[in-house]
């Protein structure tokens, strides 16, 4: 197995390779579970596969993990644990995919991210699946005092069925910025995310961008729960491109503290006729206008850069 693009954890079907970066321990989760007793507190059960990342020093070099399905009927069950030590800054690109469209894979992933006091993590997830795959993913993020996370999830090719559940817990002065972008075509997507503002001065933002194309259904339930004096914002935007697509956006605000402030914004609909007309008046065809609006809605790709070199995402997929 060759190590494409200097990935730090590569799992293809069941085969695994790891490469450490300076100041960061990277191991298959079962090995970490054996070697570091303290990890037992975080793993819900003895892990079978998945990555363990323990960042002890800040580094400009991003960490890259790749979990791929490349054969028929593979069933993966990674349990991932990321621990960012106090004051450490890190960046992780996490890629999960099926390399072909018809592999009937099953991917059940659970991840936990622990940010110690004043640490910072920028996490980018890129997922790409085949039409016959089933994917379940659970993510929990624990933010210690003053820590920060930017968690960006993007999946532009969904599996037959995708279930996601994210829970984020914020302590005093910490902040979480979540952006999830989904383009669903021939598939069913269910997303639940809950952000718990458990500390004074904590800030949570959850933005969901979804596009429903042919034969798709998306349900997105995004909750912001204030248990202490924090601020939170939920923003769900859906774009319907096809007659046989549907989007169910449910932003929910739960405020248990009179000093907290929570807001939300939501809209689901097709591209406005006025906007299309405007773009057409600049010489664009209907299709070009739609493509431009959709591309804008999906946001820009954040390229992977290692030591100044841009590595196309494709090379990991």
């Amino acid at each position: 197995m060759k190590n494409v693009g200097n990935a730090n954890y590569v799992q293809i079907d069941y085969e695994i390779q790891t490469h450490e970066n300076e100041g960061t321990t990277i191991l298959p989760s079962p090995e970490a579970y054996r070697r570091f007793k303290w990890t037992k507190e975080y793993f819900n059960e003895k892990p079978k596969e998945g990555y363990f990342i323990w960042a002890r020093k800040s580094s400009d070099r991003p960490l890259i993990t790749r979990i791929s399905i490349s054969s028929k009927n593979v069933s993966q069950n990674p349990a991932n644990l990321v621990v960012i030590e106090k004051d450490v800054k890190a960046r992780i690109y996490s890629i999960c995919n099926a390399v072909k469209k018809d592999l009937c894979g099953n991917h059940v992933g659970s991840s936990k991210i622990i940010l110690k006091e004043n640490s910072r993590l920028v996490m980018n997830h890129f997922h790409r699946w085949g039409k016959e795959d089933r994917v379940n993913s659970g993510l929990e993020i624990f933010l210690g005092n003053g820590s920060e996370i930017s968690d960006v999830y993007k999946c532009l090719e969904v599996p037959m069925r995708l279930n996601m559940e994210n829970n984020i817990y914020l302590e005093e002065g910490s902040s979480a910025n979540l952006v999830m972008t989904i383009l669903a075509k021939h598939g069913e997507v269910k997303m639940h995310d809950s952000t718990f503002l458990n500390g004074r001065g904590s800030r949570g933002i959850s933005r969901i961008r979804m596009i429903g194309d042919e034969k798709s259904r998306i349900v997105a339930h995004s909750r912001m729960i204030a248990n202490d004096a924090g601020t939170g914002h939920v923003d769900c935007m859906g774009l319907l491109l096809a007659e046989d697509s549907s989007i169910n956006a449910i932003p929910e605000l739960v405020n248990n503290n009179k000093d907290a402030s929570l807001t939300h914004e939501a809209s689901v609909g097709k591209i406005s006729e006025e906007v299309l007309n405007y773009l057409r008046s600049r010489g664009l065809t209907e299709d070009q206008a739609i493509d431009l609006v959709v591309a804008g809605f999906l946001g820009e790709e954040d390229p992977i850069v290692i030591e100044g070199q841009v590595i196309p995402l494709k090379s990991y997929m």
């Binding site: 006025e274 906007v275 609006v293 591309a295 804008g296 809605f297």
Partner: peptide, 8 residues
Amino acid sequence: PPAVRGVK
């Protein structure tokens, strides 16, 4: 002119 979100 209408605002076009996401398109620069």
